[in-house]
Design a protein around this nucleic acid. Sequence first.
DNA 1: AAAATATATATTATCGATAATTTAACGTCA
DNA 2: TGACGTTAAATTATCGATAATATATATTTT
Lengths: 228, 228
Amino acid sequence: MTEKPLVRRCMRDQVRDVLLERILEGTYAPGHRLIELELAAEFQISQSPVREALRELEAMGVVESQRYCGTRVRASDVREMQEAYELRAILEQNCAQLAVPLSAQTLAALESDLQDMQMSAAMQDVMCYSQAARSFHRHIVVESGNRLILQIWDNVQVRARLPFVAHYLVEELREFAAVHEPILRYLRNGDGVAAGDALRAMMQGLSSRMALLTTSHQVDSPEGEQAR
Amino acid sequence: MTEKPLVRRCMRDQVRDVLLERILEGTYAPGHRLIELELAAEFQISQSPVREALRELEAMGVVESQRYCGTRVRASDVREMQEAYELRAILEQNCAQLAVPLSAQTLAALESDLQDMQMSAAMQDVMCYSQAARSFHRHIVVESGNRLILQIWDNVQVRARLPFVAHYLVEELREFAAVHEPILRYLRNGDGVAAGDALRAMMQGLSSRMALLTTSHQVDSPEGEQAR
DNA sequence: AAAATATATATTATCGATAATTTAACGTCA
DNA sequence: TGACGTTAAATTATCGATAATATATATTTT
């Protein structure tokens, strides 16, 4: 397993980034155990930096660990994803209101993101769609001017697992992209309330969809590596 | 400096809690340096658990550290506090809506908190007031049923530095306590929207007050211990 | 055979020491 | 004097090893 040489920048940060990447990309499935000394051996470093990286990931909510029992990738259950979308609904509704009026520059960026969404929706490119959608929504949060909310949103975003969700909605990506059109229109007209309401409705719709996954699909069930 | 014996429960957690307490109580003023080996010596443990505790506090946003340069208590600037109250306004407004109708038990708890607030307001006991107010608002967030929001709220709560804010508002604690009366009444009547609106107004009022502190007071200026 | 107990193993939590790095203090030279 | 380099001191980052603990496995007891 060859990996980048891990030089310059403290080991801890590098390990964190590598592990986070692996988790988000799915290399480490939910439930996968992360053993400190094993990882230390792989990276050819000692236990300490690995340990600290894991603690950081734990604070971020992507792994969880129990005293003396090890650390494993969190299986984001349906309930949590639902809650994440419910929270996003609230945050983004308000951010839209705070963000208007938007600069021409920001509007252009949103326009560009929307085009990317429509393009990738047509090609059913889930990863690409997720990225564009994330960018679209994030711009609105940024423009709210509240850095704390942005920080929180970024955190919640990780838990919302959009790439995962988009995968289940691959047939409907076009429709989801289309929903963003009126939102952009409202924003362009400076109607933050309408844009906010539309954003909220969209997110709450997704939240409801999450609930349906509970029964139809088994979400994030660890396949290869199980709890013992 | 005698302290609790720090036994049972991993050292890291105990250290974290002690340090957090000291920071929130003001024993460690903003800007205060936290030196790993110094703390390790005080607690009679090694550097590692102290270090991990500091990393955790950093993730919580109460301290900040630079590579090889040490860790110090964050000076929560006015802007951040303002943003925190703006966010609380949004979260609590929505939580009130989600929380109704409340159980008799919860209403009783809110009633009790309100009494504590009025009592401590009368005695100008800032710490006591802060605690009661925190409990009051937290109950509402808990009853929203959204655990993720609760998690976020707890985090934001730390940044809002209520004890600090309350100190500046000590003369007005009575009035602030009184504002909670109609909120409780709305909640008792099951009017989540009205309660939410009132909560939001209160929080936004505080947010505005924070802005005023910018000019009139020098907030959180490290007195004893300075940056070098 | 089932329950309870002891042993073994795997892994984390902590330790004490060293390496790496930053900042401050000092001295040198133009 | 002041810019510049150099050493010294302070502190973090990392290391390698040990202690503590949980889980799994084997053993005994009833």
